[in-house]
Design a protein around this nucleic acid. Sequence first.
DNA 1: GCACTTATTATTAGTAAGTCACAATAAGGC
DNA 2: GCCTTATTGTGACTTACTAATAATAAGTGC
Lengths: 165, 165
Amino acid sequence: MTEHFDGQEAWAAALRAHGRRVTKQRLAVLAAVERHPHSPAESILAAARAELPELTAQSVYVVLGDLTDLHMLRRFEPPHSPALYETRVGDNHHHAICISCGRVEDVDCAVGHAPCLTPHWNPDAKPMTIQIADVMYQGICQDCQRAQQLPPQSSLTRNKEIGEQ
Amino acid sequence: MTEHFDGQEAWAAALRAHGRRVTKQRLAVLAAVERHPHSPAESILAAARAELPELTAQSVYVVLGDLTDLHMLRRFEPPHSPALYETRVGDNHHHAICISCGRVEDVDCAVGHAPCLTPHWNPDAKPMTIQIADVMYQGICQDCQRAQQLPPQSSLTRNKEIGEQ
DNA sequence: GCACTTATTATTAGTAAGTCACAATAAGGC
DNA sequence: GCCTTATTGTGACTTACTAATAATAAGTGC
């Protein structure tokens, strides 16, 4: 209940543009994803409940699925992780995931503008019509690299909590 | 029990090279993945049971996980699909998935040789040390495109069966 | 070839993430 | 304000996978 009325309005307009009703549940989910990008459904539920306590997990799944189909949200599934959601859509950006701590970073498109959208088909393959090229970089972030070089410190905790990113 | 002794020997040697014992379970799993690339654990189990009926699902999960860690197998997780495995490792190749029928095609590396391994970091991001760049093309295969243009034919069946690919 | 050690596999139970069917509710057009 | 129907809530269920421990067998030395 602070100052995000402009955001509310923008989301509401977008929902109407897609023929969807403007409900507090959808607005809460959108706000939660906006505030916590790269979060799984469970964390989005927790965040959205801060302003809408009666929201249920199933509603979040339904809303996330629907908004993803509308391309108002983007969904991606890092290996060994539940699906993550973000509001940054439309640009063809990618993600880098630390295989040690799970941290996710946005990465702009690697090779110019619509780079990855033109695969090199094998001679015997039947080419598909490509719509998306999801690039998932996997590596080790600076913090984890430092932690592994230092002696003991064996606390490999995946940060599934909401506070991170 | 036919002619794949050469393959057996090669797999056995690779297992020994990694300090693993050569068991019929591992050989059966490797042979199954080799014969059915891009298959989920369940299908690999079914295929491996053809020559080793007493094999259990859990063993398949353990073996797949271990062999993946050894980089003798490669694992990838298309959206809305269980993890798939293949024996083609070492080359930096990618995958195209039909979002309608689930068909998977191999795609050679898009931009030269080690292309995707150099992300463009945002100014404020802390760069990670990248080890893998998984590119997942999503689109519609020729068959599904044709099927959607034709009139009714509303049989959207995901091919999770073993016979496909 | 035979015993023995320990990696590997089987058995059984359990969990996380998400789906399905249907009843209750409320958004938006009238 | 009422009414229709999209949306959400409730509760059961499924799929893909993990964990703990007992049984088995690969490879080593004799």
